[in-house]
């Protein structure tokens, strides 16, 4: 068992983390916006239904949600979840979309009313005002909290091992079972590198948006 082989094995595990990370972002970022519109809706039933949903998802452990998504289809509907990665992706997308939705909501509500009014008196429709005037300002304001969420997501992807997605920590545990403990600690290097790249990326994005206040 050479160092090089362990490094490569762990890297293969990290591939699973990376896949889950990207899939979660691709679906949770837009889904979060839809949930935001629901929780900001003037139609009370939709608003409270959405808020209850967000409460349930944010109020229960992601680990538990992973179990639910993986086992409940088989137990209740008799349709066993075939792919572990699919189950993990569904659970992560729903969970993160709810957190994103609250960040979006905070960002949207922080935009001064005058921006909407300016849009209105200039004859912009509500949709145009949102997408052409407000959204870019929201993006700028939520960069920092979104950076937090992205980093948390990187590390949370390891939770997928509870439904046996063979991500990096699970890969390391296979060595532990054979009496090698250090690969488990070695995984930290991968997480640090992953998060380091993201931190740099967010710094760059923040700089890109610094041309206006």
């Amino acid at each position: 068992m050479t160092f090089q082989q362990i490094t490569l094995d762990l890297l293969e595990g990290l591939g699973q983390n990376l896949q889950l990370f990207l899939l979660t972002l691709v679906f949770a970022l837009p889904l979060g916006l839809i949930i935001t519109f629901g929780s900001m809706s003037k139609f009370a039933p939709l608003k409270y239904l959405t808020k209850t949903f967000v409460w349930i998802i944010r109020g229960s452990p992601l680990m538990l949600q992973l179990f639910v998504v993986f086992y409940v289809p088989g137990l209740v509907f008799g349709i066993p979840m075939k792919s572990r990665m699919l189950a993990a992706t569904i659970a992560f997308v729903i969970n993160y979309a709810c957190y994103f939705s609250e960040i979006y909501r905070g960002g949207i509500e922080s935009i001064p009313n005058g921006q909407y009014e300016a849009g209105q008196v200039l004859g912009l429709t509500k949709t145009q005002t949102f997408f052409r005037v407000v959204l870019m300002q929201v993006v700028k304001r939520i960069i920092a909290p979104m950076g937090n969420e992205f980093l948390t997501l990187v590390k949370d992807t390891s939770l997928a091992r509870v439904i046996a997605v063979s991500e990096i920590i699970m890969a390391a545990e296979r060595f532990t079972a054979r009496g090698l403990i250090w690969p488990l600690f070695y995984t930290a290097v991968y997480f640090l590198a992953f998060c380091g790249i993201l931190t740099l990326l967010f710094g760059w994005i923040e700089k890109k948006f610094s041309y206006y206040r």
Partner: peptide, 26 residues
């Protein structure tokens, strides 16, 4: 709406657009 124009006390310019874009957007 377009029959009336309004200039606000606090300007309410769009911060992410430059002067020309602010004027031409609508």
């Amino acid at each position: 709406q377009l029959k009336t124009g309004l200039v606000f006390q606090s300007f309410n310019l769009f911060p992410q657009y430059n002067v020309l874009e602010n004027v031409t957007l609508a």
